[in-house]
Amino acid sequence: MTAVGERDAAPAAGPPGEEAKPAAVRAAMRWHQSSRSDRAWRRLLVGFGLTIPVLLVGIAALLAHGAWPALKKFGGGFLTGSQWDPVSDAFGGWPFVFGTLASSLIAVLIAVPLSIGLALFLTELAPRWLAAPIGFATELLAAIPSVVYGLWGIFVLVPFLRDWVETPLSDRLGGHLGIFEGPAYGPGLLSGGVILAIMIVPFVSAVSREVISAVPRAQREAALALGATRWETTWQIVLPFARAGLIGAVMLGLGRAIGETMAVTMVIGNTPQVPHSLFGPAYTMASVLANEFAEASGDVHRSALMLVALLLLGITLVINACARALVWHVNRGPGGSR
């Protein structure tokens, strides 16, 4: 794209006698005769454009190289194996994959309704004097460092969840529903999911707010003029119109939740096992990398961690690809050939 734009913008002045040549030849000559600074500029831009793909491929290659010994040793069993024992060099990554996906899923389940509700309140309902400070405060949440969330999680959120959510749920429903079973430790899958939820709310709600306020006023007016209530307008017109962008917002949140490291490490319990309930301690891929990489004892251990990192990268890429596909599909769906 850049190159084409550059070509069009190239100076029109050429050597005398140029008029005699056909237009296509003249254009080609202009392309070759473009000034030196133009060419340098073009190369610079191409360089910028290539930075990110090159970086991505480089990271993937490095990880693949580092992970190769572990991949050779454990093969596909690494993904399903549940044992993580550096002492006997037995490594299976499933607890981490599970922990990452489960905590992120909990985060999304909590954060998405909250964020979209917040975005709807700010765009559709709240008077301006209220919407501005609330929106600002929400965005401030994004500026809090991850480790501060982690500390707050340890001292406030975890005890609160343990005493007011996990213990009652375990006492009342534990016997009937497996996911609420077992002792409420505090640090565990639920705590990790909740802290992630709080951390992704600013992102999901900011994007949702943008997307919802981008729905044309004419769409809302059309529905209201037909005698739809505000509720009907929001649910039947505004949200469907915004759905592709909202999916994007959710996927952005999911991506952040999957990659988040510090805060979740501080509250999830860091136990390499698949917990039998929501309250059990767990581990995520990002957390195990942060905790163990510096002290990885042997080559196999190090390589296994590389493989975890490669898996993490793969999962984020797959989720992003799914998001793209979903947005594309929704835009092409029956109602909306936008």
Binding site: A218, A225, L226, G227, A228, T229, F241
Partner: peptide, 20 residues
């Protein structure tokens, strides 16, 4: 809402919903 049900409105720029 009841009032607007009795009054149809056509806008300057056509604004069909992205539906069938």
């Amino acid at each position: 809402v009841g009032l607007r049900r009795r009054i149809g409105m056509v806008f300057q720029k056509s604004n069909p919903f992205p539906k069938s």
